[in-house]
Amino acid sequence: MNKVINLTPGYNGKLIIVEGCDGSGKSTQLYLLKRWLEQQHYPVFFTEWNSSELVKKSTKKAKKSNLLTPTTFSLIHASDFADRYEKYILPHLRAGYLVLADRYVYTAFARDIARGCDPEWVRNVYGFAQRPDIAFYFKAPLEVSVSRILSGRAELKYHEAGMDLGLSNDPVESFKLFQGIIKQQYDDMTGPECFVTMDATLSIEEQQQQMREIVNQRLLREFHPPAYGKYLSCGIQGE
C-alpha cells in the first residue's frame, strides 16, 4: 500500500485536512478552526471537495445521466482534485499558507474502493498529492451521522446514496449500507495514514477546543508566517 507522500522539504506552508462520513460535523469544525486562525492573522487558504470550476460541469452532467463507471467516476474526481491541487493547494503551500481542506484524497480512497476500484490503483492515481501535516478524522457511530443527514434532507441524490453500487433499491437503505462501507474504509486507514481521530459525538465546543489545542501544539509553535501578508484580506476560493 503506497501511502500519501511526505511534504517536500522547502514548502513553508502547512496542510490541515478533515475527513469523515457525511454528517460527522467535520465542515462545521473546520470552519470554526478557520475563523480562529484568521483572527490570529494567520494566512489561511480554505478549499473543499468537488469545487473546481473546470470539472464541475462535466461531473454534474455525468452524474445526472449515470454515465459513470467506477473507473470514470474515480478519474473524473481525480481530475477535479488535481485541478484544485495544481492551481490552489500546492501554490499556497509553497507560498507559506495554512491550507485547510474539507476532505482530501482519503475521501476518494474510501469511495472508489467502495465502488470496486483496485485499492492500489486508486492510491497511485493520487500519488502526486502531498501528505497532510494533520489529518483529522471525525468518527461517529453510523446511526448518528446517518440520522443527521436523513433528518435534514428531503431526498438523497443518486451517487450520494451510493445507488450505483446496487446495494439496495431503496435510497435510504442504500445510503446506510454505503456509509457503513465508507466508515469501515476510514477506520482501516486510521492507523496507516496517521489520522487524528476525533470523537464526533462530543459537543461542538469540546471538539473545537481539542482541535485548536492539537493544531497549536503540532503546527503553530513551529509556524512563523511572514508578517507582510497580514494586512490584506484574502478571500479567494470557497468563501
Binding site: S79, A82, D83, Y85, E86, K87
Partner: peptide, 10 residues
Amino acid sequence: TLGKTTFSLL
C-alpha cells in the same frame, strides 16, 4: 490553464 497532472487525468 490546466496543470499537467490535471491534463493527464482528464
